[in-house]
Simulated scan of single mutants.
Amino acid sequence: MKILLAGDSTVAACPSYEYPMSGWGAHLAPETYWWAAVHNYAKGGATTESFREEGLWYQLLHQTVQGDLVLIQFGHNDQKRDHLAPRAGYDANLRRMVADVQAKGGIPILCTSVERRHFSKGQLDFTLGEYPAVVRELADELGLDVIDLNHWTRALYEELGEEGSKELFFHFAPGEHAHWAGGLEDNTHFHEKGAKRIAVYVAEQLESLGYGLAATLKVGARV
Score class of each variant (00 low, 15 high):
residue 17 Y to V: 07
residue 52 R to Y: 12
residue 66 Q to M: 12
residue 31 E to M: 00
residue 67 G to D: 13
residue 22 S to Q: 11
residue 62 H to W: 09
residue 66 Q to A: 13
residue 40 N to R: 14
residue 16 S to Y: 06
residue 35 W to V: 01
residue 34 W to F: 11
residue 24 W to A: 07
residue 30 P to G: 07
residue 64 T to K: 01
residue 22 S to H: 03
residue 31 E to K: 05
residue 28 L to R: 05
residue 64 T to R: 00
residue 23 G to N: 11
residue 17 Y to M: 05
residue 26 A to P: 12
residue 27 H to A: 00
residue 63 Q to A: 13
residue 25 G to T: 11
residue 41 Y to D: 02
residue 48 T to D: 04
residue 36 A to E: 08
residue 67 G to C: 04
residue 24 W to G: 08
residue 19 Y to Q: 08
residue 33 Y to L: 15
residue 49 E to H: 13
residue 15 P to M: 07
residue 53 E to N: 09
residue 45 G to F: 05
residue 41 Y to G: 01
residue 52 R to T: 10
residue 46 A to H: 02
residue 26 A to N: 14
residue 50 S to E: 02
residue 40 N to E: 06
residue 49 E to R: 15
residue 55 G to H: 09
residue 40 N to I: 12
residue 59 Q to F: 01
residue 29 A to V: 03
residue 58 Y to W: 02
residue 36 A to H: 08
residue 19 Y to H: 15
residue 44 G to N: 07
residue 63 Q to N: 10
residue 31 E to T: 01
residue 32 T to D: 03
residue 50 S to Y: 05
residue 15 P to H: 11
residue 34 W to N: 06
residue 57 W to R: 08
residue 55 G to E: 04
residue 50 S to W: 02
residue 62 H to R: 13
residue 46 A to C: 06
residue 41 Y to E: 00
residue 61 L to P: 00
residue 54 E to L: 13
residue 57 W to E: 05
residue 68 D to E: 03
residue 57 W to P: 00
residue 20 P to D: 05
residue 25 G to D: 10
residue 17 Y to R: 15
residue 27 H to Q: 03
residue 65 V to Y: 02
residue 35 W to L: 06
residue 38 V to M: 04
residue 59 Q to L: 07
residue 24 W to H: 03
residue 50 S to Q: 04
residue 39 H to M: 12
residue 39 H to L: 15
residue 62 H to S: 09
residue 18 E to R: 15
residue 40 N to F: 13
residue 38 V to Y: 02
residue 29 A to L: 03
residue 66 Q to D: 14
residue 20 P to C: 09
residue 17 Y to A: 12
residue 26 A to W: 10
residue 22 S to N: 07
residue 38 V to T: 13
residue 67 G to L: 11
residue 33 Y to E: 09
residue 15 P to N: 09
residue 44 G to V: 00
residue 43 K to Q: 15
residue 19 Y to S: 14
residue 39 H to S: 12
residue 67 G to W: 06
residue 43 K to C: 14
residue 46 A to E: 15
